[in-house]
Design a protein around this nucleic acid. Structure first.
Length: 196
DNA sequence: TATGGGATTGTCT
DNA sequence: GACAATCCCATAA
């Protein structure tokens, strides 16, 4: 039986835009009492606080909610958006509110459990092709806020080789003026599992 | 305590 | 394409 190991901590010690690319093809894993679910990351977005009007940490806004982004990289920043939970990987140096949003996965293991959580009538694509969908499939919740992503039960692991990477503007931030156009969204060009 | 808005999704037109 | 669902959080008073 194959054992999945969390990635080394040093993986998270790179600039946010580099990390956003490096995360493509990696495996995101969540273990619960119900079982283990994982998926290969195929789409990410970078948020770089001080200069990024679309980021929650814009102008270093430091609150209870954004606090984890000011800490060391490699931890989970989860928050609730309308009726859904979204998952980010904290990046950047201590004191810098930067993070990478995980927007889409390609299902890997635990697909039965994904259907159980999302609804059996859903199509396979609808399990993980959006930031709110993948958290539900993996069982990631607001309570995972601040968890280390290099330890069980919620972690990043080595994945598989990917083809070319596509780059473009981020999604869902139309009120963010000039930041709307920053090319900080990255996805696996040939993947069927990206959002939208 | 009250208020306004949002890094989404699903449904309806 | 438009909009409702539904709720957390930051801000102001």
């Amino acid at each position: 039986m194959m054992v999945i190991q969390p990635i080394n901590y040093s993986f998270f010690q790179q600039p946010t835009l580099d990390l956003a690319r490096a995360l493509l093809g990696k495996l995101l894993v969540k273990e619960t009492e119900l079982g283990t679910v994982s998926g290969w990351i195929v789409e990410t977005e970078a948020y770089i606080g001080p200069e990024d009007r679309a980021a929650h940490g814009f102008e270093n806004r430091r609150t209870k909610r954004t606090e984890v982004m000011f800490g060391p990289p490699g931890y989970a920043y989860t928050y609730v958006m309308h009726t859904h939970c979204l998952m980010n990987v904290v990046s950047g140096e201590i004191g810098c509110p930067e993070a990478v949003l995980i927007r889409a996965l390609e299902p890997c293991c635990g697909i039965d459990l994904m259907y159980q959580r999302r609804g059996k009538e859903k199509k396979e694509l609808a399990l993980t092709n959006g930031p709110g969908k993948l958290t539900k499939s993996l069982g990631i919740v607001k309570g995972d806020y601040g968890r280390a992503l290099f330890e069980y039960p919620l972690f990043i692991a080595e994945g598989k080789e990917i083809g070319s990477i596509a780059v473009g503007p981020r999604i869902g931030i139309h009120n963010s003026r000039e930041a709307v156009h920053y090319p900080w969204r990255f996805w696996v060009k040939d993947s069927r599992f990206v959002s939208k």
